[in-house]
């Protein structure tokens, strides 16, 4: 059985789903079910009595086999992220935390320094820390040493649909990492998720590509199939590229040939 190990947890699905940007909670829930995801991300927000339907706690936790991974989005410093993580853990009952600290709404690039500081503190407090990071091999290694259970480098900017713009850096991170590498952000289509898995990523986290699709549950299922196919291909061993042709059919003894 090919399982994904994150701290003390083992997951059979390598697709992690975000829950933002869906047209409604019911569509999001259908997509989560169709994706087969066992880990889903949620954001911590103020309760608004005018919009009680925003509360996803009960609908999500009533899906069997789902574990919540709250994120710290909205935090722009390590201190804010640590505070949010502690609150989120009280509510989720889950040790997972996605450390997400992006101070600039224009590009949403993660702040590596604050992310590192928050991750170090939270790992010491027993959280299963999953930091969302720039695709930086040095930072990824430092976070591994700080006790994170995975690193989640971005493929491209959040919600951009630019795919695996960081592919070469991701390859280095994957080669060097002793903890699971999860591509988080930027994926647009299932083929990109499959490619990430073929490169040796351990999982992908997808939100926008599913949430804004014409049919989110079908797109969730398509991503699940692509992730499974990419993973299987990676494990099966992908052929090397060559600059020269190599025939797959015999080139001799053709019908009517002299030889």
């Amino acid at each position: 059985m090919d399982l994904l190990h994150l701290g003390s947890y083992t997951l059979s699905s390598r697709l992690i789903l975000g829950t933002g940007k869906f047209s409604s909670a019911s569509v999001m829930l259908e997509a989560v079910k169709a994706s087969g995801a066992e880990l889903v991300t949620v954001a911590l927000r103020r309760f608004n009595r005018e919009q009680p339907g925003d509360d996803l706690f009960t609908p999500l936790t009533s899906i069997p086999g789902i574990t919540l991974m709250p994120n710290t989005s909205g935090a722009s410093t390590a201190a804010e992220a640590v505070h949010a993580a502690r609150i989120a853990r009280e509510l989720s009952g889950s040790p997972f935390i996605k450390v997400e600290i992006h101070p600039n709404p224009q590009h949403l690039m993660p702040d590596p320094i604050e992310t590192y500081e928050a991750s170090k503190i939270l790992a010491k407090e027993g959280f299963l820390v999953m930091p969302y990071i720039p695709a930086d091999p040095v930072l990824a290694k430092r976070l591994e040493e700080a006790g994170c259970v995975s690193v989640m480098p971005l493929g491209s900017a959040i919600g951009s649909g630019q795919g695996l713009a960081t592919a070469e850096m991701l390859r280095i991170i994957i080669r060097e990492s002793n903890i699971p590498v999860i591509v988080d952000a930027g994926l647009r289509s299932p083929s990109e998720a499959a490619l990430a898995m073929e490169m040796g990523c351990d999982a992908v986290l997808v939100n926008s590509a599913v949430a804004v699709a014409g049919n989110p549950p079908d797109m969730a299922e398509a991503f699940a199939e692509a992730v499974a196919a990419g993973r299987k291909a990676f494990r099966a061993g992908i052929m090397e590229k060559s600059g020269l042709a190599a025939a797959t059919s015999p080139l001799t003894s053709f019908l009517g040939s002299e030889a």
Partner: peptide, 10 residues
């Protein structure tokens, strides 16, 4: 007082 929920997020 802050009253917080889990809302959609990625």
């Amino acid at each position: 007082v802050e009253i917080l929920i889990f809302a959609g997020g990625g």
